[in-house]
Amino acid sequence: MMPADDLFSWALAIAFAAIAISQLLAMVRLVIGPGTADRILALDTMVVNAIGVIVLLGISQGTRLYFEVALIIAMLGFVSTVAYARFVLRGDIIE
């Protein structure tokens, strides 16, 4: 069995790679996506993955400074997704 610290650093590297790949896949969908909803969905996925990247950075550097960044990106991402969808639905954001 691998020592715990080795396994941890390997897992961290694998997680970084996986999130980078999924960010690229979401970007492909953002470019080719035939409908508006697909593009909104791809952007939403990218925001969620960005939170993951920031959390991983926080783990690898051993700091808690990134928590506020992740929280604010989560909030802004949700609001922008809803605003975009609402703009498509009603042609207006604030009525």
């Binding site: 897992a11 694998i14 996986a18 999130i19 790949i21 979401a26 969908r29 969905l41 993955n49």
Partner: peptide, 16 residues
């Protein structure tokens, strides 16, 4: 970490 990486990747694959 491994479980999270796997599920995130599966989500992106499903999107594509």
């Amino acid at each position: 970490l491994l479980v999270g990486a796997l599920f995130t990747l599966v989500g992106a694959i499903g999107l594509l």
